[in-house]
């Protein structure tokens, strides 16, 4: 079953001009090692039980800030509402978005204790982005696959999306945020208020977890 797509990929690879092929592989290699490093840093921060939750959260936040194109992804998710927001709203949104990203992980430190991470296959997707496939394993639960979309932002590889089982997180979140704004008659402020409540809930869970 795996033989078929493999053969197809091989065929596609041979069909490409050699220079192009070498370049593509280099990009894939770079993206893969970037994800490898980022993943290891995250896992190390999460599993560092000597540090307390707040210290671990700061560590995770530093890794995410370095690895994720937070402003770019945030703007993508807000979509057409970005330009309808005031400059203050835009600034507050990016701040809240970053906080949501970090808290979403820190609220789960308990669940993710003992997490392991390994690279799966890695493939070129578009001209700009590389999809890096990884396997996430947790004690006492089934492993799952996660694809990281890596783009180049300012000459540096950055995570621009995470895809689980064919579902892109940034597309799903874009749909969610846009829906909240629409349900509130086009008010970006309503989304910001909802995001603040969500962050408070996540913070409360983080306290409860450990």
């Amino acid at each position: 079953m795996t033989a078929f797509p493999r053969r197809m990929l091989l065929g596609a690879g041979l069909g490409l001009p050699f220079a192009g092929r070498a370049l593509a592989q280099q990009d894939i290699g770079r993206a893969a090692s970037f994800i490898q490093t980022t993943g290891q840093d995250l896992v190390a921060a999460i599993n560092d039980t000597r540090a307390d939750v707040a210290a671990r959260r700061l560590k995770v936040a530093a890794v995410l800030r370095k690895a994720v194109d937070i402003e770019g992804v945030g703007r993508f998710i807000l979509g057409r509402w970005w330009r309808q927001a005031t400059p203050q709203e835009q600034a507050e949104y990016v701040k809240l978005f970053e906080e949501t990203l970090i808290r979403n992980l820190s609220a789960r430190f308990g669940e993710y204790q003992g997490v392991r991470f390994s690279l799966g296959r890695s493939q070129q997707r578009t001209e700009d982005d590389v999809l890096v496939n990884t396997i996430i394993e947790r004690p006492n639960s089934a492993p799952f696959a996660l694809d990281w979309r890596v783009g180049e932002v300012g000459g540096q590889p950055k995570v621009v999306d995470v895809i689980a089982e064919g579902t892109s997180l940034r597309l799903t979140q874009r749909s969610e945020y846009s829906s909240v704004i629409q349900q509130n008659n086009g008010s970006v402020a309503a989304l910001l208020a909802a995001m603040k409540r969500q962050i408070q809930q996540l913070a409360a869970r983080e306290q409860g977890a450990r």
Binding site: R174, S175, V180, L191
Partner: peptide, 14 residues
């Protein structure tokens, strides 16, 4: 923030 919208998007993508 809106489970209905999240499910809709996830279903169609998947």
């Amino acid at each position: 923030l809106d489970p209905y919208a999240t499910l809709r998007s996830a279903y169609r993508q998947r």
